[in-house]
């Protein structure tokens, strides 16, 4: 099954997911609302996306974009599921119940972006010390200890 067949299959089985689907850089890309993330992820898992490659986030000012990269070994295609969460209340359902691999990835996103994952079994900081203040990969993170590199360009 290649990506276009996948798209047809997706449209037939899950009509509500179909309009969110596109094909970019060799992967399927799907944009879902943060409230529907968990059900979309469960659908994807049912479709055969058995591996969760990574979970990450990007700070776009107003809101964060969460990126889940899934992979199907059988169909040999990748899939990126994106969702946006508002900066004011960055919270989304955890997918650790679908893929245990999400455990550390979500902890990392929590650590570096401060996005909470509801239903995560053990949401603690993972890379930084427990008493660290702030979430460094946010664009507005300020740390007096950071020395800014002089801008030569």
């Amino acid at each position: 099954m290649n990506l276009n067949e996948l798209r047809e299959h997706l449209c037939a089985t899950y009509p509500d997911l179909c309009p969110l689907f596109s094909v970019e850089f060799g992967d399927g890309v799907m944009q879902v609302a943060s409230s529907g993330l968990h059900s979309a992820a469960a659908d994807m898992k049912a479709l055969g996306f058995d591996m969760l490659g990574m979970v990450t986030a990007v700070d776009f000012g107003e809101d964060f974009e969460l990126i889940y990269r899934l992979r199907s070994r059988e169909m040999r295609v990748g899939m990126i599921v994106r969702t946006r969460v508002p900066r004011g209340n960055p919270s989304v359902a955890s997918v650790t119940d679908l893929w245990p691999a999400a455990n550390w990835h979500e902890r990392e996103v929590y650590d570096l972006f401060g996005i909470t994952f509801e239903g995560h079994p053990d949401l603690r900081r993972i890379l930084l010390p427990d008493d660290w203040v702030g979430h460094p990969l946010r664009k507005d993170y300020e740390d007096p200890g950071v020395i800014r590199r002089p801008d030569y360009l």
């Binding site: 490659g53 990574m54 990450t56 990007v58 990126i67 990269r69 550390w104 990835h105 990969l137 360009l153």
Partner: peptide, 23 residues
């Protein structure tokens, strides 16, 4: 894996390394 986001400038807007050892 490496995930890059560009905003059109000369610097990456975001770089994420999907590290196998981490998983």
């Amino acid at each position: 894996g490496v995930y890059l986001v560009s905003d059109g400038s000369v610097r990456p807007y975001r770089m994420k390394v999907r590290s196998p050892a981490f998983c």
